[in-house]
Design a protein around this nucleic acid. Structure first.
Lengths: 96, 96
DNA sequence: TTTACATATTGGCAACCGTCTATTTATATG
DNA sequence: CATATAAATAGACGGTTGCCAATATGTAAA
């Protein structure tokens, strides 16, 4: 992941509504209409946010008829850890 | 770390020059004037970037006479892992 | 095919961000 | 104090971002 892609990913994370979306998806796949209910934004705005989250690779989508289902991408975690390794030095750690 | 602080941190990471700065600091503390040499930006712009990096807690500073010395903050890694835990679900992992 | 509904795209606006030049502040030294 | 140097602040400008209303597209069912 080069600097450009990292910037893209971090920009995607740098918005309160998108963070809320990720937290909602943390528990499993959700339909766009469900996400809309829990956020104080319009449908086009949600669509915009989902595009950013998908484009940076944090979120996967699955189309089923009229509905779009979103979920945290499998390798989303690795992307975050990669940032740590590339820009902050220390290896991945278990800090619990 | 609440959503607001996370946004602040991710915004700080969402710029190519700041990523370069972090990579430079990865190997240890550096003076501002040294950082300037490796970046194609002016001194005020660097000062601006450093403020953002310090304010979000990713970078520590140490003033020595006229010189400012910057380094990756001790708990910078934990902050990244916290994002993973809070917004992407899975626990901290070792994926090497 | 017509209707209904879920989602995406367009276009516009205010706020924010990265950058610069000019200036100010802080610190050391003659 | 006067001078020199390192860093911070102020103000301005173009580009980007988040938001919405309006519209378009895609899909299912009558």
């Amino acid at each position: 992941m080069n600097d450009r892609e990292t910037v893209k990913l971090c920009k995607a994370l740098a918005d309160e509504n998108r963070l809320k979306i990720l937290r909602l998806l943390k528990n499993g796949e959700l339909c766009a209409c469900h996400l809309l209910e829990d956020l104080q934004i319009t449908q086009p705005t949600l669509s915009h946010h989902m595009k950013l989250l998908c484009d940076c690779g944090l979120v996967d989508y699955r189309k089923e008829g009229k509905w779009m289902h979103y979920s945290i991408a499998e390798n989303a975690h690795e992307k975050i850890f990669a940032i740590n390794a590339e820009y902050l030095g220390k290896e991945t750690a278990n800090d619990t």
